[in-house]
Computed example of a mutant assay.
Amino acid sequence: GLVSPDEVAAVLIEPIQGEGGYVVPPRGFMQGLRKITKEHGILLAVDEVQTGFGRTGRWFAVEHFGVEPDLIATAKAIASGLPLGAIIGRSEVMSLPKGAHANTFGGNPVAAAASLATIEVIEEEGLLEHAAKLGDEIKRAFADEVGDRHHVRGLGLMIGVELLDERKKPGQYLQEVLVKAFKRGVAVIGAGFSTIRMAPPLVIPREMALKAASIILEVLRGYR
């Protein structure tokens, strides 16, 4: 049954689903969720572990929706592969008395230095703009070529192509495409039951990314 708002401390959500298939929420969804949580005094926490630090062409994916959450969880790209995670939040939420919060490996100086260097590279090399522009170009290529048969979605360099073909089981179709792409030199994995997941490094050159995209499209053409 339904839960009373008084019993809900927070709502935790990925602004774009990761393992669920790179699903971008419909227009107005995040804004509506923010409105409901504010009305009932519920914290809105977003999981930006996959989407954060430039992946979608913004520092955080939630920025695309004009929503300010109470808490952001981030990791992975924050330190370019070194083990680091962080919780970012409003001061009213994060102001805890001394001794109220602790962790075992917090504040590792090497991981922290890697994170600072990562932020510097993203800023100096214009990787947010690069991800946004290149991602749009790749999405257009897939939409023009297979958009009539498959669902192309994503933001920045977080792109999913959901394979829709009634002649094949979703999982079987996806695995066939992934294997064929790999044999042609492109290592790509799936998300969800039937979605090709494209999330190249933010530093990938345009020519390399478009070459990889063309190989995947070549594989998909074989299923017409």
Results as ranks from 00 to 15, higher is better:
2 L>M: 15
2 L>T: 13
3 V>S: 09
4 S>A: 14
5 P>W: 10
8 V>S: 04
11 V>S: 00
16 I>P: 00
18 G>V: 01
23 V>D: 01
26 P>E: 14
33 L>S: 07
37 T>G: 06
37 T>K: 11
39 E>K: 15
41 G>E: 04
43 L>F: 11
43 L>T: 08
45 A>E: 02
47 D>H: 08
47 D>C: 06
51 T>R: 09
51 T>W: 03
54 G>F: 09
56 T>W: 06
59 W>N: 13
59 W>H: 12
60 F>P: 05
62 V>M: 13
62 V>A: 07
63 E>M: 02
64 H>K: 05
64 H>W: 12
65 F>N: 03
66 G>H: 06
66 G>S: 04
67 V>A: 03
69 P>F: 06
70 D>G: 11
71 L>Y: 02
76 K>T: 09
78 I>C: 05
82 L>P: 00
83 P>F: 07
84 L>F: 01
84 L>I: 00
85 G>V: 06
85 G>S: 12
88 I>S: 01
88 I>Q: 02
90 R>K: 15
93 V>P: 06
94 M>I: 06
95 S>T: 14
95 S>A: 14
98 K>Y: 09
99 G>F: 11
101 H>R: 15
105 F>L: 15
108 N>S: 09
108 N>A: 07
111 A>W: 07
113 A>M: 12
114 A>R: 14
116 L>A: 14
116 L>Q: 10
118 T>P: 01
121 V>C: 02
121 V>M: 11
122 I>F: 09
128 L>S: 06
129 E>M: 08
134 L>Y: 09
134 L>M: 11
139 K>T: 02
139 K>M: 15
140 R>S: 09
143 A>K: 15
146 V>K: 07
147 G>R: 13
148 D>P: 01
152 V>Y: 08
152 V>K: 12
158 M>T: 00
158 M>E: 00
160 G>A: 00
160 G>M: 02
160 G>H: 02
160 G>Q: 01
163 L>E: 01
163 L>Q: 05
166 E>K: 15
167 R>S: 10
173 Y>T: 05
175 Q>R: 15
175 Q>K: 14
175 Q>V: 02
176 E>K: 14
176 E>N: 10
177 V>G: 08
180 K>G: 00
181 A>D: 06
182 F>P: 00
184 R>K: 15
186 V>T: 03
186 V>I: 09
189 I>M: 12
191 A>Y: 04
193 F>Q: 11
194 S>T: 04
195 T>D: 03
195 T>W: 07
200 P>Y: 11
201 P>R: 14
205 P>M: 07
205 P>S: 08
208 M>G: 00
208 M>F: 07
208 M>E: 13
209 A>R: 12
209 A>G: 08
210 L>H: 09
210 L>F: 07
213 A>H: 08
213 A>P: 05
215 I>H: 03
218 E>M: 05
222 G>V: 09
223 Y>Q: 03
224 R>E: 14
